[in-house]
């Protein structure tokens, strides 16, 4: 529907403040409907494979974790952003690192119309 609740509760979990820019979720108008852009929680994530500094590491239950953010500061090409076909990663230009989904599921919890689902995908 495009109410952006997921976007804002996400920013709150990751950053402790509310923002549309600093959030791991995005919602866009797309034709007559909407497009939600969010981390797919890949088992073998392309973004992590693309990282030359091993700053992004796959998480055991899918998705990635930013284990070494200091490495991101000097990173100019940001290959992780390009590697994700969903374009789910965005760059935090203040802290100079990707905004990484923490796979917490808060977005799905506050989705009023069951657009988002959080759980095990077989």
């Amino acid at each position: 529907m495009g109410c952006m609740t997921c976007v804002l509760v996400c920013s709150r979990e990751i950053y402790g403040s509310l923002s549309v820019k600093y959030s791991a979720m995005r919602v866009f108008r797309d034709g007559l409907g909407f497009r939600v852009v969010v981390c797919s929680g890949c088992e073998d994530p392309d973004c992590a494979s693309a990282c030359p500094y091993e700053a992004l590491k796959p998480r055991p239950d899918g998705g990635v974790e930013l284990v070494n953010p200091d490495k991101c500061v000097e990173c100019e090409d940001r290959p992780c952003l390009d590697a994700c076909s969903m374009k789910a990663l965005r760059w935090d230009d203040e802290r100079k690192r990707p905004i990484v989904c923490i796979e917490c599921g808060v977005c799905a919890k506050f989705c009023p119309h069951e657009v988002l689902y959080y759980g095990e995908v077989v």
């Binding site: 529907m1 495009g2 109410c3 609740t5 804002l8 009023p112």
Partner: peptide, 13 residues
Amino acid sequence: LIRKNPCPLCPIG
């Protein structure tokens, strides 16, 4: 009806 158009942070639309 083809869709509902909510304001930000409104689950009603």
